[in-house]
Amino acid sequence: MNDDREGTTDTAKVRVRRAPKIPVFLIAGGGLGAVVTFIVTALYPTDPNIGFGTLFGYFLIFGIPAGVVVGAVVALLLDRRASKHAQAVDAERIHVDAVPEEVEGEIEQ
């Protein structure tokens, strides 16, 4: 479709960088915290009155948040590193006026 509308262009310097997806790091850190909690709980003998599942569940209260914190720290360190390696590029923005109603009806047909 040929667009004959006129617009104004605007050029600006912008910084482009690859930023980590922080929620992915938080979820992965929580999962890693759960796995480490399972391994540490399994290494030591459990009280038969309490049971392994109850003990593991109790320690998950501490293991998952610790893993989330570790994941957040890793994500923030990678984000800081990415901001140092950001590149400045020229970006062009085109402002186009709205299509008049007469022309809009012709386009739909």
Rank of each mutant, 00 (worst) to 15 (best):
I39P: 05
T8V: 01
V103M: 10
L32C: 11
K13R: 06
G71W: 04
G57M: 14
F59H: 04
R80E: 02
T37W: 08
A19Y: 01
V36F: 11
K84N: 12
G51F: 13
V99I: 15
G67Q: 13
G57N: 14
T11K: 09
L43D: 04
V36I: 15
R17W: 01
R18A: 03
G57A: 13
G57E: 11
L60F: 04
P45C: 04
T8I: 03
N2I: 07
A12K: 12
L78F: 08
E106Y: 12
P45Y: 02
V35S: 09
A42D: 08
A66R: 09
A66P: 05
R5T: 00
I61R: 11
D79Y: 00
A75D: 06
R81N: 03
N49Y: 11
G31Y: 02
Y44L: 09
E92V: 08
Q109D: 14
V99D: 04
F52P: 07
E6I: 07
A12W: 11
D3M: 07
F25V: 12
G57L: 13
D4V: 06
G7K: 14
F52E: 09
A91D: 13
N2E: 11
E92S: 08
A88G: 01
V40M: 13
D97R: 15
G30I: 13
V74T: 12
I64K: 02
I107E: 01
L26S: 07
D4E: 08
L77H: 06
V68C: 02
M1N: 01
V68L: 03
Y44V: 06
L60C: 12
E92L: 07
S83N: 05
F25D: 10
Y44H: 06
T54E: 09
H85Q: 00
D10E: 08
M1S: 01
A72Q: 05
S83Y: 05
E108D: 15
P100Y: 04
T46C: 06
F59S: 02
D97Q: 15
I107T: 01
F59I: 03
F38G: 02
I107S: 00
T37V: 07
V74M: 12
